[in-house]
């Protein structure tokens, strides 16, 4: 029976786990010394540099992902609630919600047109009397990232909410609870697992954001790790440093994913 799973195992071992180990090793070598005929020079220099020189890059990556997760929670909770409790045209909503799935690249690209002088957002702001708005920057990046990950948040919270018996809300209302009290005392505690899982997943997916900071951000947001990693690794062939950034990125993504998976019940069930 293990034979059936073997091809899948082979694929992930050969093309995920081995490469990840490989970049761990690589991150411990200096620059592109791995290539040199004299053999690689092992050093912790790259990690030291991450702290001394690239800490702002790490921080801005975390900041963007965290903001995207929070924005998704704020907008996603009511969305999921209404979807689960009030909406009958759910299939239609689902069809709309696949658009972000097609990729952050198109979102970022499309948003550039919106933010362009003469674009819809630009004109809208102008009609409110805001002249020459600085549209490329943190808000735009966070918006694009949040949009991309929104379905994951809604999925997680929606699953949690649909497991809550609507009678509980009616019971709370009959007992005199204000809707906000019902939210705080019944809905939030009972959907906590879904909320935490949603936050973590969105954060985990967002730390690797590439197109959004690059296309919509200012110099500050463009320091985010995924884009810096690409430049250092592919453009400047500083394998040591870029793999180190990869490891840091991986740790950021995994730490939260671990929490998320512990919160949400596995697909295989009990």
């Amino acid at each position: 029976m293990l034979l059936l799973v073997l091809p899948a195992i082979a694929i992930v071992v050969l093309f995920l786990y081995y490469p990840l180990l490989f970049i761990v090793q690589m991150s411990l070598t200096e620059g592109s010394s791995y290539l040199s005929p004299a053999g690689p020079i092992y050093t912790l220099q790259n990690y030291a540099e991450m702290v001394s020189r690239y800490l702002p890059n790490v921080l801005v990556t975390i900041e963007l992902a965290a903001l995207a997760a929070i924005v998704d929670l704020i907008f996603g909770f009511p969305f999921a609630y209404i979807l689960v409790r009030k909406v009958r045209y759910r299939n239609l909503v689902r069809s709309f919600m696949v658009f972000p799935m097609f990729g952050a690249l198109y979102i970022a690209f499309g948003m550039r047109f919106l933010l362009l002088p003469g674009g819809w957002v630009y004109n809208l702001l102008k009609s409110f009397g805001i002249q020459n708005p600085q549209l490329y920057g943190l808000p735009s990046v966070v918006f694009a990232m949040a949009l991309f990950a929104f379905p994951f948040m809604v999925l997680n919270i929606g699953t949690a909410l649909s497991n809550i018996d609507p009678t509980l809300e009616e019971a709370a209302a009959c007992l005199g609870a204000h809707p906000l009290q019902t939210l705080q005392r019944v809905l939030l505690p009972l959907s906590r697992a879904g909320i935490v899982a949603g936050l973590m997943l969105v954060f985990g997916w967002s730390v690797g954001a590439f197109a959004e900071p690059l296309l919509l951000g200012s110099i500050n947001e463009q320091r985010s790790l995924a884009w810096t990693l690409y430049q250092r690794g592919v453009v400047q062939t500083d394998y040591g440093l870029s793999t180190t950034m990869g490891i840091v990125l991986l740790i950021l993504a995994f730490a939260v994913t671990y929490v998320a998976l512990r919160q949400s019940k596995g697909v295989l069930g009990e």
Partner: peptide
């Protein structure tokens, strides 16, 4: 369950990390 998690892990690896790891190997 562990095996399933082991196989699902690629979904949670940031694409840039997978990219750099694969191009080097």
């Amino acid at each position: 369950h562990l095996l399933f998690a082991f196989l699902s892990l690629p979904l949670y690896v940031p694409a840039a990390v997978l990219g750099i790891a694969l191009v080097l190997t």
